[in-house]
Design a protein around this nucleic acid. Structure first.
Lengths: 253, 253
DNA sequence: CGACCGGTTGAACGTCGTCAACTACGGTGG
DNA sequence: CCACCGTAGTTGACGACGTTCAACCGGTCG
């Protein structure tokens, strides 16, 4: 964790000052997908204690690094993040991309230190959720506990899906699955399901999908040639969602 | 979930009868690695409320299936399990192998239904942990809550490792990593780190590692030819752990 | 005993990685 | 403003690694 962040954490976690800087969850437009989902209005009020502190991040900023002490989770308010793990020999693997409403940092709980790096791929804002507060409040608000368990479990399920992707699917199936997943998540956030700008490079896509950037590039071209998508650098337009689904699910071999 | 199991759950979860059938966690020799690890003796006593119910399973039995209603976690007391996810088109992926002291079923929390199948690869015993009890007791025993979070987080970290494996490593590196991981986990449970019997088939290893059974078989032969291991069907003897570590970590290319 | 399942091994093939050249884009500084 | 550089992306040729298909072996169970 970088120095400013630790400082900021300290500043806002101990004596509960202020109201201006605090992001009242009750008013947050991400309530449905972020941590407090499923709470009654009364319970959401109690969340003020959780001291969600908003913080701006710039493209390239690191939320936390593997090995850094774990003391907080991060809820993405806006922006786009990647998480990645690195092997001793330097090879690394992107383990996920996160967007608004998703929670980062749960890997750190097990060992009190983070297991991966979380890096912003564009400017954005995050809410810092000190883990000790979450623990305390979970005891008082059972539905928060339940919801947090669901969030962690969802991450486990998501990773199961990625294992399936990496373990049994071919390169074109992986990329189709990736595009469909992005499309669905963007759509759930009110963006177009058919047109969007990729926030990550071909290399990052490749790392996530277990293939080389050249293969990603070639597949984009192939999909375009087949009329499935239109691509121009980071801009993507899904022209034939059903066709992509067929590649993903069926793949006539 | 199969019918008998649901019946058994119902039988033991509602009125807390008996002491004979209940597996007192306080006396369980897995205390260090299973759920209650990190609790004070007093707190462990409270765990009686959790109603860990022991149940025997036979090779081939299914603990739960994808889609089945989720209502309990399972702690492995003995035996060996695999979990797997299945795609609509029938292809499947082994997502993990579980042994004594490990917890199964956390994938079910997110949607109140299981996301994968859990299947016994040998006879064993499991403790059923009704999730509702765990939720209730977590509120009364903060260190149980904390420990459960750690268990879930550890699963996330483990899956990160598998993603690294599948995404960036070559077949021989994967198999070396797999053998070293097995060795280390068996050793932590008091078994030999150097000699063991595989409980799974070549196909299951291959599915887990994202390769075909023939490749697994060929690599076993190659490792044997290089003096790294001795294999005879399911029996494995690690002859040169350092050599395996070099393949796994360094891989002079 | 025969059938079946799990495992091993060989040969041919194909997908994807490697290496390399080239293009496009964006930011910086003269 | 344009020239320049570095980074990101595209495309081709070639080769390696792992898959596919197939034959064969050994143990186990009906």
């Amino acid at each position: 964790m970088n120095p400013e962040m630790t400082a900021e954490l300290k500043r806002y976690t101990t004596p509960l000052d202020l109201g201006a800087l605090k992001t009242a969850c009750a008013n947050c437009n991400l309530r449905e997908i972020c941590l407090p989902a499923g709470l009654t209005p009364h319970e959401v009020d109690q969340l003020d204690e959780l001291v969600y502190v908003r913080k701006k991040v710039k493209r390239g900023d690191t939320l936390y690094r593997a090995g850094a002490k774990f003391d907080a989770l991060y809820a993405v308010r806006s922006g786009f993040f990647k998480t990645r793990v690195t092997m001793p020999d330097g090879r690394d693997q992107v383990t996920g991309f996160s967007m608004a409403g998703e929670i980062l940092g749960m890997d750190g709980i097990s060992q009190d230190k983070h297991n991966c790096d979380a890096i912003a791929l564009e400017d954005g804002e995050i809410c810092t959720i000190p883990y000790s507060h979450l623990e305390r409040l979970s005891i008082e608000v059972p539905s928060l506990q339940r919801h947090f368990h669901k969030v962690m479990s969802r991450e486990i399920v998501r990773e199961n899906g990625v294992m399936m992707l990496l373990g049994t699917m071919r390169a074109d199936e992986r990329l189709a699955a990736f595009l469909l997943n992005l499309s669905q998540r963007l759509n759930a956030r009110g963006y177009s399901a058919l047109e969007f700008h990729l926030r990550m490079t071909r290399e990052e896509i490749g790392s996530y999908l277990g293939m080389k950037l050249e293969t990603v590039s070639r597949l984009f071209s192939k999909f375009q040639a087949n009329g499935l998508i239109a691509v121009d650098q980071k801009y993507v337009h899904l022209r034939n969602i059903e066709g992509l689904r067929e590649i993903y699910a069926h793949h006539t071999r």
